[in-house]
Amino acid sequence: MRRILLILSCAATVASPAMAKGFDRPVPHAQSATAEFWFVLACIALVMALAAVHMLVMRR
């Protein structure tokens, strides 16, 4: 009796992912103008920081 219950519980566990709902991919949304502005600002700040580090390293 225990073996039958064990086999049934294992079969139910293995079969449950097969009954799962399929994955629906999310739809990407366009960036807003505000997000693009902050991204450009961050890129410029990063390039300026890299240039500053380069100048500091070249002095030594």
Rank of each mutant, 00 (worst) to 15 (best):
M1N: 11
M1Q: 07
R2M: 08
R3E: 09
I4S: 04
I4P: 00
L6I: 12
L6D: 06
L6K: 03
L6C: 03
I7Q: 09
I7T: 10
I7H: 08
L8W: 02
L8A: 06
S9T: 15
S9Q: 09
S9G: 12
S9N: 09
C10N: 04
C10V: 11
C10L: 14
A12Q: 02
A12S: 11
A12L: 13
A12V: 08
A12M: 08
T13P: 02
T13D: 07
V14S: 03
V14F: 06
V14L: 12
A15M: 12
A15Q: 03
A15G: 05
S16G: 04
P17I: 00
P17N: 01
P17W: 00
P17E: 01
A18Q: 06
A18D: 04
A18L: 14
M19Y: 15
M19G: 13
A20G: 02
A20N: 04
A20P: 04
K21Q: 08
G22E: 08
G22M: 05
F23D: 00
F23Y: 13
D24A: 12
D24G: 05
D24Q: 10
D24F: 11
R25G: 03
P26W: 02
P26C: 01
V27N: 03
V27Q: 08
P28Q: 01
H29W: 09
H29E: 15
A30G: 09
Q31C: 09
S32M: 09
A33C: 03
T34L: 14
T34K: 12
T34A: 08
A35T: 15
E36F: 10
E36M: 15
E36N: 14
F37N: 10
F37L: 15
W38G: 00
W38R: 13
W38L: 10
W38F: 15
F39I: 15
V40S: 15
V40L: 11
V40H: 13
L41Q: 07
L41M: 15
L41P: 01
L41T: 12
C43M: 15
I44Q: 01
I44T: 07
A45G: 04
L46R: 06
V47W: 07
V47R: 08
V47M: 10
V47T: 11
V47L: 10
V47K: 04
M48P: 03
A49R: 13
L50F: 06
A51R: 02
A51F: 12
A51Y: 07
A51T: 07
A51W: 06
A52P: 00
A52N: 02
A52M: 07
A52L: 08
V53E: 10
V53G: 12
H54Q: 09
H54I: 11
M55G: 06
M55P: 01
L56M: 10
L56W: 06
L56P: 01
L56F: 06
V57S: 11
V57N: 05
M58T: 13
M58Y: 08
R59K: 13
R59Y: 03
R60N: 08
